[in-house]
């Protein structure tokens, strides 16, 4: 049943992602792609939307997917229920663990073994973010397909051009103007570049 699936998957995401923010992206990606809740392109759109809307990315994602999947299953009431269940599931581990830490276990977090485990997990988390970034990057810019042992790479001209412009914008902002890079600004600028480039490239033809 979809509601149990939503609960179980988002509980897992909430439980196994330490550090919040982008650390949650690899697990969310895995869950939504495995269950066919979103295509990879839709997943990227949703991260973009999550960046420009308020609140933690994981909650944005949970609510959206819960609403969509619940709606497919049971109409408007299912939408509401699905959104509620997925959102509840993704925050439940954080809530329980923080409550325990507030009440009794504040010392546990300073324990040598806990700190050691966290340090190991942090290194893995960075690697998982990089891996997710690389595979998504390749899918957007130069999709690699493997069939019968043959590896072929295609090349998406417009996205590559847009990506280079975004990288240039970020470089100028952080290195030349010495400003901090705000994700929301990157998303808004990317949207504008996307619109402008597409109309410019189409018009001459």
């Amino acid at each position: 049943m979809i509601f149990l699936e939503l609960f179980f998957e988002f509980f897992k995401i909430g439980l196994f992602t330490i550090g919040g923010g982008y650390a949650m992206i690899p697990l969310i990606k895995e869950a939504v792609l495995n269950h066919n809740w979103l295509s990879e392109a839709e997943f990227l759109d949703m991260i973009g939307i999550s960046e420009v809307t308020p609140g933690p990315i994981a909650i944005n994602m949970a609510t959206y997917i819960g609403v969509e999947q619940g709606g497919l299953f049971m109409g408007p009431f299912g939408s509401f229920l699905g959104g509620l269940i997925a959102t509840f599931a993704v925050i439940l581990p954080a809530f329980i663990i923080m409550l325990l830490i507030s009440i009794i276990l504040k010392r546990v977090i300073k324990n040598r073994f806990v700190q050691g485990a966290l340090k190991g997990i942090r290194a893995v988390a960075v690697a998982l973010i990089l891996s997710a970034g690389i595979t998504l990057l390749s899918d957007v810019l130069f999709p690699i397909s493997i069939a019968n042992g043959n590896i072929s790479v295609s090349f998406n001209k417009t996205p590559v051009f847009i990506f280079l412009l975004i990288a240039f914008f970020s470089f100028v902002l952080t290195k030349v103007m010495k400003k901090k890079l705000q994700p929301i600004l990157v998303i808004v600028v990317s949207a504008v570049i996307g619109i402008v480039i597409n109309y410019l490239l189409i018009l001459p033809a």
């Binding site: 990227l44 991260i47 290194a123 975004i166 570049i193």
Partner: peptide
């Protein structure tokens, strides 16, 4: 078209975040 740009922006942010965090190692 906006979302074509946003997709590129998002992968840029993810890769960049990974490199920024990797410096911490």
């Amino acid at each position: 078209y906006a979302f074509m740009g946003i997709k590129c922006g998002v992968v840029f942010l993810i890769v960049r975040t990974a490199f920024v965090l990797a410096k911490g190692l």
